[in-house]
Design a protein around this nucleic acid. Structure first.
Length: 578
RNA sequence: CGGGCCGUGGCGCAGCUUGGUAGCGCACCUGCUUUGGGAGCAGGGGGCCGCCGGUUCGAAUCCGGCCGGCCCGACCA
């Protein structure tokens, strides 16, 4: 370890906020090169490799074949798929000396589709599953949290090609199980959750969330059944207890200067829960731009994804939109809307007979408005962002909330890319058909950070043995004499026994060695000191539990090797989630 | 991209209000002592004060512009 390049820091660099970022920097595993761009030092690189290797093994196990695709990709392919336009500024573009346009691959659907369409002509060659592990680049709006959201990051991405839905589903399920096993082997506490498909496209998708306080994603889950979902996608049953249950005459009240639900509920001295918030959107209908009003309980957020499910193609209005339709932003409501306006309301409001809503006139609101009497609702739909306390759509249990780090995701893409890029094969019946595709991503460098988020304490990291840069560290507490000699002998014998072991042979005080060992988080530490040797023992420390046990010198190597082997197989054998 | 904060030896910071010759802790180098939880003493090296311009006899400090970073929001492996 005298020659190991692992510059540890006592003090936390000011740039780091979250646990994993601080510890990766402090333990000398990574260094920042630019915003969202990191260099991996030897220890960080080793752990990253460990994760890659686990992913590789699981991919190979389900018959996916490893390839290596270019990071620099020609624009033509992206123009074909339509994403040269759609991807926006997140796609880093560059021009070569001849003026040809390229981009840095943020993902590889285009490349893989182009690769396969030219080679695979028959259903006999299907299914086909390919994967790679390499750098992605996305010019993120806001890189942050160290490796959790970089611009450059290591990803395993797999793509599969199928002749029929059954085959796609089968591989999708195999991938999902493999992803579960990967999480298990990484020692992650995780949940597969229903998700929204975002940029990549497609419909069926599951995200694998490592549960963590610092997670950027909010999710809800049910203890009563397996249901778990990203709040972006979660269907939800909102239970409501309206304050007014009998129809009352509608009344117009002056609400000068009131433009938000918070102000309104203060002004009327009622709970936000008893108001109804109206948001406006616009959609193309029969060639005209049609106004859409979404009504949700005042204490809930409209989920734009669900708005889109209810009214395909709808976009929420921006400032220009409000001007275009000449409607008062702070006083919208479903009563007396302009002709042609579509009113969509959240299902949870369906039984309410007394709505407090905007009057569509600046400075006025209506109370006790009643659907069916004072206005019409065109459609009832699930519109709100799910929250803990809502009811489970599967079993009716009460949903709980958690935060998570999205470490991986599986998608069924269908024919989105194969159609746009003309990738087809000849089916059994002789007819040309587009491939059905799936794509499957694991954030490898993000997983590294996620593992740390879940396995750290005040002293540093406490790696699961499968991800630790090395499995065992030998700490001779003196740099010379018998202590050093015994330490070196144990180190050699452990290495010969196939254990990944490092020796801290620096001429440092015991305290420095202990502190660095706990910071870096070697899972097992063999402490060789004068005190122990006098009794013929070494100490064996388990980093995660902090427990130290004395082991007779003669048994040391065997004990440690057995411990490491046992810990590894325990993680491998943890039962995967369904 | 909006809002907030910040750029001073490798790291963490003070100095800036009220311009006057750059300082502290850690780290680093040398020597002695020390040696089971980030040692002590003595000596030493290292700074375009983010960059450009302006004000001034004089700018880390005041003014303007730019660049970079972090945090909070809208997007995502």
């Amino acid at each position: 370890m005298t020659s190991l390049y692992a510059p540890t820091l006592k003090e936390v660099p000011a740039e780091a906020e979250v646990v994993s970022h601080r510890l990766l920097l402090r333990a000398g595993m990574v260094r920042r090169t630019a915003a969202g761009i990191y260099s991996f030092l030897p220890l960080g690189w080793r752990s990253l490799h460990k994760i890659e290797q686990i992913v590789r093994e699981e991919m190979d196990m389900i018959g996916s074949q490893e390839v290596m695709l270019p990071i620099v990709q020609p624009a033509e392919l992206w123009i074909e798929s339509g994403r040269w336009e759609d991807y926006g500024p997140e796609l880093a573009r560059l021009t070569d000396r001849a003026g040809r346009e390229f981009c840095l691959g943020p993902t590889h659907e285009e490349i893989i589709t182009a690769l396969v369409r030219d080679e695979v002509r028959s259903y006999r060659d299907l299914p086909l599953s390919l994967y790679q592990i390499n750098m992605k680049f996305r010019d993120e709006v806001r890189p942050r949290f160290g490796l959790l959201r970089g611009r450059e990051f290591v990803m395993k991405d797999a793509y599969s090609f199928h002749a029929d839905q059954a085959s796609l589903q089968e591989h999708y399920d195999a991938m999902s199980r493999a992803y579960g096993r990967i999480c298990e082997r990484l020692g992650l506490d995780y949940r597969p959750v229903e998700a929204e498909s975002g940029q990549i496209g497609g419909k069926v998708t599951t995200e694998f969330m490592a549960l963590a306080e610092n997670g950027e994603a909010a999710l809800v889950y049910c203890d009563g059944c397996d249901y778990a979902a990203n709040v972006d996608a979660a269907s939800t049953i909102v239970s409501r207890t309206p304050a007014v249950t009998e129809p009352m005459p509608m009344e117009k009240v002056a609400t000068p200067g009131i433009g938000t639900i918070a102000e309104l509920s203060d002004f009327l001295a009622i709970s936000p829960h008893d108001t109804v918030k109206t948001l406006a959107g616009v959609v193309e209908r029969d060639g005209a731009r049609t106004l859409v009003f979404f009504c949700v309980p005042g204490d809930r957020e409209l989920n734009p994804v669900k708005a889109c499910w209810a009214v395909p193609g709808v976009e929420l209005l921006d400032e220009a939109g409000f001007a275009e339709f000449a409607i008062p932003k702070g006083s919208l409501g479903p009563v007396g809307v302009k002709p042609g306006t579509l009113v969509v309301a959240d299902r949870s409001l369906e039984g309410d007979v007394s709505w407090g809503v905007g009057a569509n006139e600046d400075g006025f609101h209506l109370v006790h408005a009643m659907p069916g009497r004072d206005f019409e609702v065109g459609e009832w739909a699930d519109l709100v962002v799910a929250m803990p306390g809502d009811l489970c759509p599967t079993c009716g249990g009460v949903l709980k909330g958690a935060r998570g780090i999205e470490v991986s995701q599986v998608f069924q893409l269908g024919t989105k890319y194969s159609v746009s890029m003309g990738a087809s094969f000849t089916a059994e019946d002789g007819i040309e058909a587009p491939f059905l595709m799936g794509c499957y991503g694991v954030g490898v460098s993000r997983s590294l950070a996620a593992v740390i988020e879940q396995h750290a304490d005040d002293a540093g990291m406490a790696w699961p043995v499968t991800v630790a840069p090395l499995e065992v560290a030998v700490l001779p507490l003196m740099a010379e004499g018998e202590v050093a000699e015994v330490g070196e002998r144990i180190w050699r014998e452990l290495a010969d026994a196939g254990v990944e072991v490092v020796i801290d042979d620096r001429d440092e005080r015991a305290g420095v060695k202990f502190a660095d060992a706990d910071l870096i988080g070697w899972p097992y530490q063999v402490i060789v000191g004068k005190r122990g040797l006098a009794e013929g023992v070494i100490e064996l420390k388990d980093r995660a539990s902090g427990i130290r046990t004395s082991v007779p010198l003669a048994d040391a190597v065997e004990r440690v090797a057995a411990l490491v082997a046992g810990a590894k197989s325990a993680l491998a054998a943890r039962t995967a989630h369904p």
